[in-house]
Amino acid sequence: MTRNLVKIRYNGIKYQVRAGATVLNALEEVGVSFIHGTSCRQGICGSCALIYRINEESELLGLLGCQHFVVDGMEIMSTPHIPSKERNFDPHDQNPIELLLQTYPEINNCNDCNACNTICPLEIDVNNVIKGFAKWELNEAIDMSSKCVACGLCSLRCPVNIMPENIIMQARGVFNIAIAQSMVPIPNKAKKELARETMELDRICLMSKESLTLQANSLRREILEGFIGYEKMDSEKDFQESD
């Protein structure tokens, strides 16, 4: 049986890849190698961020290789290392939002070019997130940026050197501390559950790399078996309905 193929370029090299595959899977199937983390393919780390154009169009877009599907005519480019280091910042400060703005004064330099929104692979309104921080609207800005995985593509494109992903991550720390400090006393049942989860986390932190890899692979198999089971149930249901 002949597979459907689409034509793409990756870093200037032509490939014919399987239609319907994610960019990461498609490139690996034709021999391109990538370094994998433990939670690879989960869409949570931003490590597989790539930039692309379609059929020589002028607009430059961003994608996560593990989430985005290949399209005929894609011109895909790997991203360089982005030297975007977090600055010293104390989220426990009495005025953390003011300190955040002082730490990242370039927030006020945004010129509304919208390059950050165009490149964001998760379609976050980065422009208004940054404006929200500048206006001290922390809740709204955190909510708008909740999907951010710190891939760094917005920093790569920003012409005034704003580092949105760092600002977002540190603002989340401020927000979480504020929530923790305002929480009502935790019930005993919740305390026991928290203690159990803390013990489990400590156990995981002490595991070797090999043990973590084995556990991660086992979890992947369980998830895959679950998906296969659901698909089987659905197909049996469709068969019964057709009868």
Rank of each mutant, 00 (worst) to 15 (best):
S145K: 13
E29F: 07
F89M: 00
D243G: 08
L63R: 01
R157P: 02
I223Y: 10
E140H: 10
H92V: 04
I124V: 08
L50Y: 00
D72L: 05
T198I: 01
I107M: 06
N108H: 05
P164T: 03
Q170E: 15
G12Y: 15
A150N: 09
E29R: 12
P187C: 03
S47M: 08
K147H: 14
S145W: 13
Y104M: 05
G132D: 00
P83H: 14
A216R: 14
N114S: 08
S235C: 09
P159H: 11
S218K: 14
R220T: 02
D234C: 11
E197C: 01
I204A: 02
K147F: 14
E236D: 13
A19N: 15
E28C: 02
Q94G: 02
E210M: 03
S182D: 10
D112F: 10
T198P: 00
E200M: 08
K131I: 08
E210A: 03
V184N: 10
F89R: 07
G62S: 04
I167M: 05
V160P: 06
S235Y: 12
L224Y: 07
N95Y: 11
S218R: 13
K209Q: 09
H68W: 11
S33R: 10
C205N: 14
Q94C: 04
D72P: 12
K192R: 09
A141P: 06
Q181P: 04
N55S: 00
C40V: 00
N161V: 05
Q181C: 05
K191M: 13
L50K: 03
C110K: 02
V32I: 15
L156K: 08
A115G: 08
S242V: 15
C151E: 03
V30G: 08
K147P: 05
S211G: 00
P105F: 02
D93P: 00
E28P: 01
T118G: 08
I204C: 02
L153D: 01
Q16L: 13
I124T: 06
S78W: 04
R157W: 01
N161L: 08
I13H: 05
S182C: 09
A178V: 00
E86R: 15
R203D: 10
G132V: 07
S211Q: 15
V17T: 13
K191S: 09
K232I: 15
G46H: 04
E231K: 14
S235I: 14
N4Y: 02
L63N: 04
L122H: 03
T213K: 15
M144T: 11
G73D: 02
A178L: 12
M144E: 06
P96D: 14
N109D: 10
R18S: 15
G65S: 14
V129P: 12
Y230T: 13
D202Q: 13
L206D: 04
S78G: 13
L50W: 00
R220L: 11
L194D: 05
S235W: 11
F34H: 15
K191N: 09
T118N: 07
T38F: 05
L63Q: 06
M183S: 09
K135N: 15
C116Y: 11
N166F: 03
Y15P: 04
L101Q: 03
A190R: 10
